[in-house]
Write a protein that binds this DNA or RNA. Structure first.
Ligand SMILES: [Zn+2]
Ligand SMILES: [Zn+2]
Ligand SMILES: [Zn+2]
Ligand SMILES: [Zn+2]
Lengths: 132, 132
DNA sequence: ATCGCACACGTTATAGCATAACGCAATTGA
DNA sequence: TCAATTGCGTTATGCTATAACGTGTGCGAT
């Protein structure tokens, strides 16, 4: 249950994200891959679906955009919440993980008898360089 | 700097959200308000912008939808992170707040010298009633 | 009074994000 | 050989959000 071999389209999308400075929307990825034969949004979305499933890519909900995971090994043991800081100035995204937050969230949610499937934590603001 | 008197459009949108069982997209709100004279998305989005500013409404990023705040008084003192559980089964959304999570997130972010402007925490899953 | 400004509003058009539905080809395993 | 599965390509469509323009109203400064 490791990561399967990527198909051609999946590799192209993964490569585009991995070499990008920051997050990219599906349509931005499409534009970057036109020269490699991409013609339609679904080619991108289908590849992204798999890459998300494999944990190689994250979706940023507050941006409708995608980033390459910066520590894919962390996600092999499935448990674990991923959080992001997102700079409004330069677009830089930093992924981080914290057990204390996981534990606390997990306790609060259990108190509601709620069963978690996916947790989104995104912090918008300004990074050190971009702070006023 | 309390909440100003709402305009007609703002009141209508607020009313629609307040009387709704769960979150609604801007276009769903538009449809509900056609009988009151709403004709275009901008009428909804402009009202929502103000309601968000006043803290009467929250945007759910992972749903592209909006909910009425269940504890507007909490937001009067500006500080405070809002978190949500969102049931995939029945659509129920529960808003909650927790100082421990705020403090921990704040410390982690400070360690990056990151300046937070808005924090999104959304937990997708199944509520007690909808759990398998 | 009237000018200037801020703000809410209405309308049309457009941009940006995501999926439905069809068909084809290659792979796999019974 | 015959399903069943998976990936792929294409066209069309639907959902979400904003740009750009103009109108009207209230209100303080001159
Ligand atoms: Zn990751
Ligand atoms: Zn920055
Ligand atoms: Zn609230
Ligand atoms: Zn439920």
């Amino acid at each position: 249950m490791g990561t399967p071999q990527l198909t051609k389209n999946q590799s192209l999308v993964m490569g585009a994200l991995a070499h990008s400075e920051g997050p990219m929307s599906a349509y931005t990825i499409l534009d970057k891959l036109r020269d490699q034969g991409f013609r339609a949004p679904l080619q991108v979305y289908r590849a992204l679906d798999k890459l998300l499933e494999y944990g190689l890519v994250h979706r940023l909900e507050s941006l409708n955009a995608f980033v390459a995971c910066t520590c894919p090994h962390e996600h092999e043991h499935d448990r674990g919440v991923t959080a992001f800081t997102i700079c409004e100035g330069c677009g830089q995204v930093t992924e981080f993980h914290d057990a204390a937050i996981e534990d606390r969230l997990s306790a609060l949610v259990r108190a509601q008898s709620f069963k978690t499937e996916k947790t989104t934590i995104e912090i918008r603001g300004h990074c050190k360089s971009c702070a006023a």
